[in-house]
Every structure is written in C-alpha cells, then in structure tokens.
Nucleic acid binder design. Structure first.
Length: 867
RNA sequence: GGGAGUUUAGCUCAGCUGGGAGAGCAUCUGCCUUACAAGCAGGCGGUCGUAGGUUCGAGCCCUACAAUUCCCACCA
C-alpha cells in the first residue's frame, strides 16, 4: 500500500469521496443526545464556476464542520445555491441573443423554463466542483433560492412585512440601468473615475440684464432644469437670488434659489438643478418644491420634455447636439476636460442613470434595531471583533431597501392590483376577486424581488421556515456564518434583521470574517487581469488537500492573503512528508504485534513526544474553537513535521533497529502518536488522512473511517515532567554538537569522536546522541572544541586546538554567560521589578541567575588553569 | 469628506492578557544517512514605519506623523 515513493492524490481522492457519500457520512441527523452544530453554506451564484474565493470560504466551513463532527456533535453543513437574479438574467439574455431570440419574443413562461434549465445545470456543476475539493456538506439537503420551499418562505416573509407596514411602494430617485432596464440598489452601483468634460453654460437673465454661468458635466440634462442654485452665504450672488433665468434651448424660465448644498468654491459657485436626474438635485428640489421634469426615459433616450429637436436622441447624441446649439447661440462659454466619478451597473458596466421611478421598499429604521442590539450585547460575535464597527456603521446609516427589480429572473412580487378600482393586495397567489370592490380581474405586479430578499431568509428558509420543523427547532440559530469581509454588510446584516423579524432569533451566533485571496503580487484576481487561479486545476494536479493547506495555512482572520504556487508546493511537500512517515511505520510494523498504548513501556523519548502531543491537541482545539483555523493548521503542521518526523522518528530508530521488545514498544507508541496526528489533521486534509488511516496496518482496528472517528483529546502527562525536561536537554545538546561539527567544517556524513565525562548517566540517550549528531562518545579525555550544553560539556576531539584558541573560545563563552548574569542581576536589583512583576517571573529569573553564576565560576576556574 | 486595516529578515507572513524577536521561501555551507533530494543537518540575515508618551519592562497600550490598502459617502 505504501510502496510508492511519493504520494499521488489522483489515485484515491475521487474514490474516497464516493465512499463517504455512499455511506452517508455527511448527512446530519436530529439527535437529541448530541449537541447540534450547524453552518449554512453561503449560496454561490448559479452563474459562477467554483473559484479560489469559494475554495477558501468553503474550506473554512469544511474544516469547522469536520472538526465538530469528530467531536461528537451532530454537524450539519447545509449547501445551496443562489439564483442571482440580475447576473443570471444578464447571461440568459446573452444566451438568447446568440440563438437569435429575445426574452420579450419568447415570453415570460418560456423564459422561466430557460431559467430553470440554467439553474439546474449550473447549480449542479458548481456543487460537483465543490465535491472534488472534499467538502462534507449534506448534499441531500441541497437547497436553491428559487425552489419551492424558498419561494414559500419569500411569500410568507413579504406578506408578513407588508401587513406590518414594513413594505411600501414609493416614488423615489433611484439608480436605473438603461441596459438591464431595471432599477438597481445602491449596493449594485460601482463607481469609477471617468474622463469627461465640464461645460460652462451661460444662462441669461429673463429681464435681459446679462447672464450667469453654470458648470455641468451633463449638459443634455439642462432640459430638466427647474432652478439654478447658489449658496445663501455666497456674497457674490446675494442680490440675484429670486431673479428669473431664461433656460437655454427652451422657452422656460427658472428661478435662482439659495441652498446650502452648493459649495461656493466649486465651479462657478452656481449649480443647475435637475431634480429628476440627480440625487442631490432631487433633495434640493424637495426642499424648494421644484417641479420634476424627466427628460431621459428608461431606454436612455431623450423624452418629449426635451423638445421636438431632441426627443428620441440617445444621451450622447443629445449631448453633442446641445453643445452645437449652445455654441450657435453663443451660450457656451467653454468646455474643460474633467475627470469625475461615474456610477456603473455592477453587472453590465453600463453607466447608471439617476431616475425617478416607482418602486417597492422595505422600511429599515425599526427592522435594524434588534440586529444592532444583538451584536452590542455580544450574543452574535463577529470574528475578528474589529468588524463590529463596519457592521454598526452600515446599519446605523441604512436607507430603505429597494426590493423591486424590472426583470424576469427571480421571485415575482406577490402584489395584485384590481383592474377596476386599482386596489392593492398582497397574497400568496392570485386572489379570486378584489377584496374591496369584488371585481374578478386582477393583475400581478410585473416586477421581481431583489435576489438578496431570498438570500436574507437563507439561514432559516433552508431549515424549513415558515413551517415549524424539527430542523429549525434543533439547528437554529446556527453556529457560525463564514464569509468574506466584502459581503459582511451587504448580506450578513440582511440575514440578521430578517432572522429576528421572521424567525424571532439571530440566524447565527458567530460570524467568521476572512479576507480575499489575492494573486502572488497582491492584486485582486480578476478576469480582465487574467491572474485568476482555478482551484480545480490546482486540485487536479496537486490534490485537493494541498490546495486546502495552501489556502488556509498562516492565514490570519480577516486579512487578505496572497496565493502562490510556492505555497502549493510547500503544502504538497508536507503531505508527502506525512505520506513517508506512513511508509516508515508501515515498513517497521510488518512483523510487530501492536500494543495498546496503556500496555506499552515508555522511555524518555516516548514520554517527551506524548507530552508534546497532548499539548498540541490542546492548542489546536483551542484555536479551532476560536475559529483561528489558519493558526490551528500551523500548529499541527509544525508539530507533525518538526517534532514528530524530524525528531521523534529519528529518536525511535535505535530502538527499532534493535528489535525485540524495544521495537515492539517503540512502534506501538509511534503508531499511536501518528494515529492522533492523522485525526487532528483530518479536518484540514481529509483525503490523504483517510487513505492512510484505512491502509496503514497498525491502525487497522480503528473505526471504519477517520471521518467518524473521535477528535483526539488531551491526556494527563504530569508524571512525564522529568523525562520531558531530560529529552529537551538531549535535543538541545544534539543541536549544539551538530552546530559545532558544522563550524569545524566536518562533513555531516563523517563520524567524530566526542568526549563526554559521564556517558553512563545518559543511559539510552547516549545512543540517540551518537546517532543523531553522528558522533562516537568516549570517556577518554582529549583536546578539542568544547561544546557547552545543558547536559554539560562535550569535546569535539577531531578538531585539535592550540591553547590560544581554546582560551579564545572559553572567553567567548564566559562573555555570553556573563551577559546573562548581568541581565538577571540588573532586573533583580530593580526593587520595582521584584515588587511588581509576577512572582513566577521573578522566580525563574532568580533560578537562571543561580545556574549561570555557577557556570561562570566553573568556566573561570577552567580559564585560570589554562593560563 | 467619514471610517477601518496594514507597516516585523531580501520576499510572503506569524507573534497570546505587555515579561529575552519567529516560521516558510530565497540565499550560503555540508550531506543521495535503508520513510522522504518533493529530503536531512547547519549558517547568514531584524533600531519591529517615524517621533514622542505610559510602564520596573513596549513589536504589543496611548498621541502625533508618514506610507499603503480597503469600505462608506460622493465630487454641479
């Protein structure tokens, strides 16, 4: 089984996963005898393929789920996908266009069919991709934001909020995408700097007494102007407030008004006010009761309000024509190049148009209160804590949520209008007649809901809400939401306030925030840069386990990390190390009857590694409980490689080669420690640990899968204290001797003679030192380089030294120890240190001083005898 | 404009409630030692962004400044 020199993940990952699935290890049962643990998977968009960001996010969740499952919790990781209305509609329309069709052409019903085919195909694809990365979600519970149960939850929530007056229809200034032909929310607008111009336009006074100049980046909107504003404190313009202006290219007159919104220093200090097409102007208009004149329609064309010469023109055409006309009439003072920030549709990148439209909104002020409180009270903890601030800031400044979208993909708004009396009703399905006038012809609102409406319900709709299910009772509130800081505010906040409103409780008790995966030089991964890493490609080549380590190891909570193939290489090297440790154990356990750990005879080295093992189990467990997954992995990674492989296995070799009982005991303990390491590693690297667990002979009698074995717990090691300290000294001595050999330029494959005073006192440690430092210990004195170790002096005999050199070395050592003594003395002679520092610290300092003073005396007398 | 993060070895990053600066990569030296050269052993390398302050003691706490990244608001 372990005859291969290196580990080849391709051979077993797929097979192992299939077995896990067949044996239903992922399925979580409601078990009153077990504590529940639940993570709801943030649903990836059906439009996307698994990318590196998903891989990171899901790996965190998988590690936590596997850990808790092994700890004996009934651990549910509930998977699902999001219909991503705008994004999906965008892609569907593209697809139809390729087939020469339009959505209007095929109609709403046919479009829905297309959408469902898409959901099923792509939803399945991304979940299949997740499986190759080893994720242990309960696939039988797979949910989709548009499925029947989710739809039921959406209707229930909408009607509940509507009846409470928390959902209302309003006419507002909204962001309109002329490409998607839908309103989009503030969150869906992305700003970027764009080069444009600043048009300085003359507006003549109506009474013929000259003109003023306003500066604008959008001259084509001048048809919608209903005023020009100046700052009330602006002395330059004090006397013109209230005067009328002749609006160029029209026969309308507009007033000069005063409003604080205007900044005196900017432009000419005069702003044309277009309430229908600018959010700020809209507010100014409200304050001054100005008329709203829409001059741009939903297609991005000029309306009839712009006059017969301009109606029907596109924005760009209109802009050119306005410029031309103004020039002709001598009303254009100048056009300056100007760069400013322009909002774009997140999906299609089209510049958005601020526009007055009628939309559905969720009223926020009352809704968010429990969401703020729950974090303030510490009942919902955000990790790391500093993200609290972002969370509060967002909720405290929140605007009413626009939930209607003028597209076809998504949950249709459950609002019905009476064709006769225009009465509005909210209902789960078409009412038979108008509740007010009894008319039987009703029409459903044509809009659909914002995608986030259904994802806001995700933590409880997936558990069966609004029905009172056992799942909801048992698993809700869930334990932890894992997500990137980029959607903490956009999504997590929505779930919390909807959780309180609908399910009466916080949807999760912890929120784990991780950073973004960036490329090797710290850039965001993006299609346009072409610097994206495909997790599936990496997994195929190096194994899912290696990818998982590369993503998680050393990642600090909430911080971005850089992904590189070097990390993957290191990860693979680590797994290969584990693989080879298996090979070693396999090789030497062929003819050995493995003893249970409590029947083994334990030597110093064994008590040493067992102490370290117990400590590392504690550390890893603590870090996982704190959600510091990256740190937990580093802990066990370093232990497995440095302590176990590099030291313990090497320390075991003398006993193993000796054979007999020594070998039997050693191999038994070796297998025990390794078994524990595998279990601790399993949540991080599930595949290779499972493969080894199942195929390594000394572990044969264990549970049928490492997945359902118990996570190791600490054990008492207090009686090993002395041996632990001794082995540490031996290790230190070996390092120092190696170091000395290296400095003496002795090749590491050359065995050196080394003098040591009391070889017998070392016991079996003597052979360890001989083997690991590659030396021959002798009690015959001789000259050479002296190694000062915690076990006393060793003398490297190969290197003959003259007296002068010895004195030099001795003096160097004296200097070093003297420094230590001085340091301790200085600290201890400070009364405030002795007084205020913790007693244990003072104590260790005293001890150190004592030991060092003795050493110093020793060294000095030696120096004197040489001189 | 408001808020948050980051700044530690050449590079990527750890560093606990304040108690002697760490890892990996890179580089250099020596080794194919019967688990592993995808490896082993060892070396070099740091005024912890700057300046103050608190403290017996500061990479860690406080203040200011600088560089850099991100979020929110938004620029007629």
């Amino acid at each position: 089984m372990f005859d291969k020199k290196t580990y080849e993940p391709q051979e077993f990952e797929e097979k192992i996963y299939k077995e896990w699935e067949e044996k239903k290890y992922f399925s979580a049962k409601i078990d009153k005898n077990k504590k529940p643990f639940c993570i709801i998977m943030p649903p990836p968009n059906v439009t996307s393929q698994a990318h590196i960001g998903h891989a990171l996010d899901m790996t965190y969740q998988d590690i936590l789920t596997r850990f808790k499952r092994m700890q004996g919790y009934s651990a549910l990781w509930l998977p699902g996908a999001d219909h991503a209305a705008l994004a999906t509609e965008h892609k569907l329309v593209e697809k139809l266009a390729k087939e020469g069709k339009t959505k209007e052409g095929i109609g709403r019903e046919e479009f829905d069919k297309e959408a469902w085919a898409w959901y099923n195909f792509y939803g399945n694809r991304i979940m299949t991709q997740f499986k190759t990365l080893g994720f242990s979600a309960d696939w039988d519970r797979y949910r989709f934001t548009m499925d029947e149960k989710s739809t039921k939850a959406v209707l229930e929530a909408f009607i509940k909020l509507y009846n409470k007056g928390l959902i209302y229809r309003g006419t507002r200034q909204t962001h309109w995408c002329i490409h998607c032909k839908s309103v989009i929310s503030d969150d869906e607008v992305v700003y970027s700097d764009e080069k444009g111009g600043m048009w300085h336009i003359k507006y003549p006074f109506a009474d013929g007494s000259g003109h003023i100049v306003v500066a604008t980046t959008r001259p084509e909107t001048l048809f919608g102007d209903t005023a020009v504003a100046v700052n009330p404190r602006d002395k330059r313009y004090k006397n013109i407030v209230g005067k009328m202006l002749k609006l160029p290219l029209t026969d309308r007159e507009i007033p000069v008004i005063a409003d604080d919104y205007v900044e005196c220093e900017f432009g000419t200090g005069m702003v044309k006010i277009t309430p229908a097409h600018d959010p700020n102007d809209y507010e100014v208009g409200k304050r001054h009761n100005l008329e709203l004149i829409s001059v741009i329609d939903k297609e991005g064309k000029m309306t009839s309000a712009s006059g017969k010469d301009f109606v029907g023109l596109s924005l760009l055409e209109a802009r050119a024509k306005v410029e031309e006309e103004l020039k002709k009439q001598g009303l254009l003072e100048k056009v300056e190049p100007y760069t400013h920030s322009v909002g774009h549709c997140e999906r299609c990148k089209t510049a958005i148009e601020p526009m007055i439209t009628e939309q559905w909104f969720v009223k926020m002020d009352e809704l968010v209160k429990p969401a703020i409180k729950v974090v303030k009270d510490g009942e919902l903890k955000i990790h790391p804590k500093r993200f609290d601030k972002n969370y509060f800031h967002w909720l405290e400044n929140i605007q009413d949520w626009c939930i209607s979208r003028q597209i076809w993909t998504g949950h249709r708004i459950p609002i019905y209008y009476c064709d006769k009396c225009k009465h509005i009703m909210a209902a789960k399905s078409m009412p038979e007649k108008c509740e007010k006038c009894g008319h039987t012809h009703l029409t459903q609102d044509s809009d659909v809901l914002d995608t986030w409406f259904s994802s806001a319900l995700w933590p409880f709709s997936t558990l069966g809400w609004p029905d009172k299910t056992e799942e909801l009772e048992y698993f809700y509130p869930t334990n932890v939401l894992v997500t990137g800081y980029d959607i903490l505010t956009q999504w997590a906040t929505k779930m919390v306030y909807m959780g309180f409103e609908c399910a009466g409780k916080t949807p999760f008790r912890n929120c784990l925030i991780h950073g973004l995966v960036r490329d090797e030089i710290g850039r965001k991964m993006s299609k346009s840069l072409g610097n994206g890493v495909d997790p599936l490609e990496v997994s195929e080549k190096y194994g899912a386990d290696a990818l998982r380590i590369a993503l998680i190891k050393d990642m600090a909570l909430g911080l971005d990390s850089r992904f590189s193939m070097t990390k993957v290489d290191n990860a693979r090297a680590f797994i290969n190390k584990i693989w080879n440790a298996s090979k070693f154990i396999s090789l030497h356990s062929q003819d050995v009857d493995i003893l249970p750990i409590n029947k083994t005879k334990k030597e110093t080295k064994d008590k040493w590694i067992l102490t370290k093992l117990s400590n590392i189990i504690k550390t890893v467990t603590n870090n996982l409980e704190k959600f510091d997954v990256g740190m937990a992995l580093s802990n066990i990674y370093n232990f497995a490689w440095n302590e176990f492989c590099d030291w313990y296995i090497e320390l075991c070799k003398p006993a193993i080669y000796k054979g007999g009982e020594d070998k039997q005991n050693t191999v038994s303990i070796l297998a025990y420690v390794f078994d524990n390491i595998l279990k601790v590693l399993h949540p991080f690297i599930p595949f290779v640990t499972e493969y080894i667990y199942k195929n390594l002979k000394p572990l044969e009698n264990n549970a049928e899968s490492i997945m359902i074995s118990s996570f190791p717990t600490t054990f008492s090691v207090s009686s090993y204290k002395e041996e632990f300290a001794m082995q540490d000294k031996v290790v230190e001595a070996i390092k120092l001797i190696r170091n000395a050999k290296n400095e003496a330029k002795i090749a590491s494959n050359v065995k050196s003679d080394v003098y040591y005073g009391d070889i017998e006192s070392l016991g079996s440690n003597a052979s360890e030192i001989e083997k690991l430092a590659l030396v021959n210990l002798t009690s015959e004195k001789g000259d050479g380089k002296v190694v000062y170790s915690p076990l006393g002096e060793f003398v490297l005999l190969d290197e003959k030294k003259d007296k002068e050199e010895l004195i030099k070395e001795l003096e160097a050592e004296i200097k070093r120890v003297q420094f230590e003594v001085d340091r301790s003395e200085k600290m201890l002679s400070n009364p405030r240190f002795v007084e205020k520092a913790p007693a244990s610290l003072v104590e260790t300092e005293k001890n150190k001083l004592e030991v060092n003073q003795k050493t110093l005396l020793n060294l000095n007398s030696k120096l004197n005898s040489l001189k």
